[in-house]
């Protein structure tokens, strides 16, 4: 993947020299041409075409934004509810991600999902402890959401 990015940047710089104009917009055009070239020549370059991974990263960002909006609406509901009758609590969620980077992403995503806040990660990285605003509703829901998160993160990092 790093090799393909370097190749793409080289093509963009060559495009700038061929145009004899050295502005950012020409660089962007050259970069797009480079991506197109790499797309057509992907059988001859090592590794998978890296734009596929970029698309997955963008999908993950959209997932992030969607969860952020939903969780804000959920919080607003609790803030303006006249009676504080929720049942908060901390529960443990098993995870099967390995590296620090992946776990950080997952903890961030869980914090942004409706009604949950990641509190801590166990010492052997196998559980993540989550504080939930209303534990009865949340616990089943988070188990299903977690699978989609883990899948999206794995697609990006592996």
């Amino acid at each position: 993947m790093p090799f393909q990015i370097i190749l793409n940047i080289t093509i963009a710089i060559m495009w700038m020299f061929l145009n004899e104009s050295y502005s950012f917009s020409v660089f962007v055009v050259g970069y797009l041409f480079g991506a197109l070239l790499l797309f057509f020549l992907q059988r001859f370059v090592p590794d998978e075409f890296y734009m596929k991974r970029v698309v997955k990263i963008i999908a993950l960002i959209f997932l992030f934004i969607k969860e952020l909006l939903l969780s804000n609406i959920a919080i607003l509901k609790w803030v303006y509810k006249p009676k504080l009758d929720m049942q908060p609590g901390i529960f443990a969620l098993p995870i099967d991600l390995k590296s620090n980077w992946e776990i950080t992403l997952l903890a961030n995503l869980i914090t942004l999902t409706p009604g949950t806040l990641s509190i801590a990660i166990s010492n052997d990285y196998s559980y993540i402890y989550i504080h939930a605003m209303d534990i009865d509703n949340v616990e089943e829901e988070i188990n299903s959401i977690k699978d989609s998160f883990e899948r999206a993160i794995k697609e990006v990092t592996r």
Partner: peptide
């Protein structure tokens, strides 16, 4: 909200948006 953790829910989410 009653305690630190539930207050953090409000502080981290809504203020971000």
């Amino acid at each position: 909200f009653p305690d630190v953790y539930t207050r953090l829910h409000a502080a981290t989410k809504s203020s971000t948006l």
